[in-house]
Design a protein around this nucleic acid. Structure first.
Ligand code: ZN
Ligand code: ZN
Ligand code: ZN
Ligand code: ZN
Lengths: 139, 139
DNA sequence: TGTATAGTGATACACTGTCTCAGTTTCGGG
DNA sequence: CCCGAAACTGAGACAGTGTATCACTATACA
């Protein structure tokens, strides 16, 4: 696994460390930007052609459940997977130019959601924001 | 077309009114909640089995371009299509219990996005929020 | 009514994702 | 270090989403 922290979080979630999961994490670490499922399959197949597609999806699911990977929406509306330093659920700004992402601190999001809940009598269970644009270095 | 307003907006966008597009709008009007592409295809096929799948997708694209239909994310992450009273791009709260949606006024969203832009030197081109939870009447 | 052009249906294709099932691997305990 | 329960895997089938092509048709507008 990429790091001991990642390893521990997988084990803590009752999940096992396998060769295949290593490959998926490695692919995401090398990219340092969100990848489409297809890109992950291709990257993994390059170092180990025997890894099945189903395993890649299962791994992404397991990594997301452990809070290691976040599912984001790429420009064009297609889903992508992102390996994050930050732990737990959070939101991202996605640069349409360089493809990199910026973590959005929860402190910026919580007041907004609270306001929405109060204004509409709505209880938020889950939220995910797709914010696309240009990062500071791409302007 | 469902209403004269919808008809005019299609024409204003250089788009034509066809029997097939009528069926799609009717299906969405009857549902009064976001529908998956598959559900729309099924509903349309019920009243006119000769409408092709490709046409349904093209119609949804055309309706979205005219601001008549909004693409939202259903519980489970699957895409859905919603016929909105409100014109133009806006965001929604989606109730995981009854499936209905609540329009989020831009006045609630703009300050949040402006704050994000200022805090990160980011220029927002497009945003879409998936907010799932329970509406006032489902609690 | 005529006509430029937008729209259509069939079909093929690519991507995302789930499920099953028999066989394999991992991890923790003894 | 070995064992076994349980997690994991690969293959393959299946379903949904969405785009592209192309010959044909219908619409809007003058
Ligand atoms: Zn992140
Ligand atoms: Zn950038
Ligand atoms: Zn709306
Ligand atoms: Zn509700």
């Amino acid at each position: 696994m990429g790091s001991a922290a990642v390893r521990d979080r997988m084990l803590a979630a009752g999940q096992r460390i396998t060769r295949q999961r290593d490959e998926v994490v490695d692919a995401l670490e090398r990219a340092r930007r969100p990848l489409a499922a297809r890109e992950i399959c291709d990257a993994v197949a390059e170092s180990n052609p025997d890894v099945g597609r189903a395993t890649v999806f299962r791994t992404l699911h397991a990594l997301a459940a452990a809070g290691i990977v976040q599912r984001v929406t790429l420009a064009g509306g297609r889903p992508g997977y992102l390996l994050c330093e930050a732990e737990g659920h959070h939101h991202h700004l996605v640069c349409t130019s360089c493809g990199r992402t910026i973590d959005l601190p929860e402190s910026a999001v919580t007041p907004f959601l609270t306001g929405v809940e109060e204004a509409h009598g709505f209880t938020v269970d889950h939220s995910s924001f797709d914010v696309h644009g240009r990062c500071a270095s791409c302007r």
